[in-house]
């Protein structure tokens, strides 16, 4: 069996920027022994699927739903260490908890203003409707970085602090100058797309569950090709399987490139060192 043509067929046609990656230390059942091993396993797996840049955020290990600020700082130190070991690969996001808005702002100052992280990650401590997010969002606008907000619409019931897509829309309307990434296209589903459709400052990432057919095409149809970004949620999910949601569509090469690189490159601040491919070629 000659697998070379098949392997070539599965390679993405352009560089790929993944906006949603966690260290293995957060979730992987096979525990890693060091940051270096984490970096090695993640980057080798990404490379096998043709993914070239990883926006990474830790949720602490194991992830508490309501982390203390020392736990957030420890999580952020971990991804800074990953970035320092492989600066060409990792673009770290700062994990904070809106239960502690003032301390979160201080942590953003440390991680973004000083250490040059490139975004903010919010998980399930509080829903996006909570006023504790407001100082965080205001400072993210000041720092010119995007905020990736976990969201899901679970038939089986969301966690108490877990945001629904409508909560993300609420957040987007409260902070129209903020650049928001709503995580988990497949978790938010068809209804989630409609919840944020009227919010031009919200893009959706392609992670969130199985590689269900038609969802990326639907996201492009309902939000526009400039509001969908590739996110894998690795290592919970497989880089290449999630890539398949985009590469396995009939969307044009231009649209696929927008999802896999250009849209995310536009969201990130200048110090991330990534530009849309057409601009980078000039």
């Amino acid at each position: 069996m000659n697998l070379s043509p098949l392997r070539a067929h599965l390679r993405p046609p352009c560089p790929v920027l993944d906006v949603h990656v966690h260290p293995l230390a957060c979730f992987e059942p096979r525990r890693v022994s060091s940051v270096r091993e984490d970096v090695e396993i993640l980057t080798v797996a990404a490379q096998r699927s043709g993914v070239t840049k990883l926006c990474v955020f830790s949720l602490s290990s194991p992830p508490p739903h309501e982390p203390t600020m020392p736990q957030c700082r420890e999580a952020n130190d971990y991804v800074l260490a990953m970035r320092d070991l492989a600066p060409d690969w990792f673009l770290p996001f700062c994990y904070v908890n809106p239960m502690y808005p003032d301390e979160s702002v201080v942590e953003m100052e440390r991680c973004i203003a000083r250490e040059r992280m490139v975004g903010v990650k919010l998980w399930v401590a509080r829903r996006a409707t909570d006023p504790g997010l407001d100082p965080i969002l205001r400072y993210a606008v000041t720092l010119d970085v995007p905020v990736l907000q976990h969201a899901w619409l679970k038939t089986t019931g969301n966690l108490p602090g877990e945001s629904f897509p409508a909560d993300v829309a609420n957040l987007a309307r409260r902070h129209p100058r903020a650049r928001l990434i709503m995580a988990h296209l497949n978790g938010c589903g068809m209804r989630g797309l409609e919840a944020v459709r009227a919010c031009p400052n919200v893009v959706v990432d392609t992670s969130g569950g199985d590689p269900e057919s038609g969802m990326v095409e639907l996201a492009v149809a309902r939000l526009g090709a400039d509001r969908v970004v590739y996110g894998s949620d690795a290592p919970i999910r497989h880089f290449g399987v999630v890539l398949g949601k985009t590469l396995g569509t009939n969307l044009s090469d231009t649209v696929q490139q927008a999802i896999l690189w250009d849209n995310a490159a536009r969201l990130l601040p200048s110090w991330a060192g990534v530009k849309p491919l057409a601009e980078a070629a000039v």
Binding site: L6, L10, P211, E212, S213, G240, V242, L243, G244, G248
Partner: peptide, 14 residues
Amino acid sequence: LFVPFSALARVVND
């Protein structure tokens, strides 16, 4: 229900 491309990638890439 799922994208065939993804099914192949899961096996072939790794």
